[in-house]
Write a protein that binds this DNA or RNA. Structure first.
Lengths: 144, 144
DNA sequence: GTCATCGATTAGCTATGCTAATTATTCTCT
DNA sequence: AGAGAATAATTAGCATAGCTAATCGATGAC
C-alpha cells in the first residue's frame, strides 16, 4: 500500500503543477480578443478537424445548447462555419475557417513562447528530466 | 538557437499535457456541488489562508466586483467568511470556514485519487521519471 | 484639515453554464 | 411501407460569472 500512497502524492503534485502552469499562461489569452470558452472550442476544431456539435460539446464538457451558442458566436466572428452532415442530415459539422485557425495558432504560440521563457531558467539536465517524464505523462493520460 | 526551438517544443508538449490533465480531473468536480469559480476561489483561501478581496481577485485573474459576488455566494453557502481588516478598515479579509475547508479538501482528494488511478497504469520507472521532473517544473513556474 | 487615492461594493451589461421543450431527421419493428 | 421511438440541434428561459462605470467609506499626502 505504500506504493499507492506514493502515487497519490505524485498525483497531487502533478495536479498542482498543472493548475499553476495553466494559470500562468492564461494571462496571454487576453491578447487574442476571443472569450475563453470560444477559444477553447476553437482549439478543438482547429486541431481535431470537423466535428459534430454533440461531440464538440462532449469534448468541452458542456451541454449541446451551450455549445450551439458558442458556435453561433464563432460563426459571427468568422472563426468557424457549420455545414450539414450529408450522412446524417440531423447533424451539423463544425469546422474552423482559415481566419479561425490562424488566430488560434497565434494564441497558442503566445502561450507556448511565454511558457518557454519560464523553462529557459532551467539547465540542460533539468530540461531533459522534463522531456523524459512527458512520454510517461502522455501515456498515463490516454483515455481508457 | 536550436536549444530555444527545443525548449519551445518542450513547452508545447508540457502545455498540452497540462490541458489534458485538468480536463480529465475536472469531471470529478460535479460531485462537489459547488460552481467552478467558487471552487477555485475557495481553494486559494483554504490553501493560502486569509486574504484580501483585492488579492484574491488578482490570484484568480478576475476583477474585484466579480470576486465580491463570488465571495457573497461562498458566504451564503457557509463556505467562507468576510471580516474587516483592522489594519486597514477599507479592506476585508476572507477566510474559509471549517465546512469550506472540509468540502474543498474532499473535492481535491477526489481529483487526486482519480488522477492517481491513471498514473497507476505506469510502472515504477515511469513514475520516478515524473517525480524527478516535478522538481524542475515547480522551479520553472516560480513567479519571477 | 482638505483632497486625492484606494478597497470594496452596487448597478447594469455580456458571456457561458444549465434544463425543458420544439423541430427535423433517422432508426426500429412489425 | 408506415407508425412511433430515438436522436441532433436549436430555442426559451433561468443562474452564474465575467466586465466597466459609479459610489461609499477609510486612508494617505501635504
Amino acid at each position: 500500500m505504500t506504493k499507492n500512497l506514493a502515487t497519490e502524492e505524485l498525483a497531487d503534485q502533478l495536479h498542482s503543477a498543472a493548475i499553476r502552469l495553466l494559470r500562468l499562461v492564461r494571462v496571454q489569452d487576453a491578447a487574442s480578443g476571443i472569450a475563453p470558452a470560444r477559444l477553447s472550442a476553437l482549439s478543438v476544431i482547429v486541431f481535431g478537424g470537423p466535428i459534430s456539435l454533440r461531440d464538440l460539446a462532449k469534448a468541452e464538457q458542456v451541454r449541446p445548447p451551450t455549445m450551439s451558442r458558442i458556435v453561433d458566436a464563432l460563426e459571427t466572428q468568422g472563426l468557424a462555419r457549420r455545414r450539414i452532415d450529408q450522412k446524417d442530415r440531423r447533424a451539423v459539422l463544425i469546422a474552423a475557417t482559415k481566419k479561425g485557425a490562424t488566430l488560434l495558432k497565434q494564441g497558442r504560440k503566445r502561450r507556448v513562447k511565454f511558457l518557454a521563457s519560464y523553462l529557459s531558467r532551467l539547465d540542460r539536465v533539468e530540461l531533459s528530466l522534463i522531456a523524459d517524464a512527458l512520454g510517461a505523462i502522455q501515456r498515463a493520460l490516454q483515455p481508457r
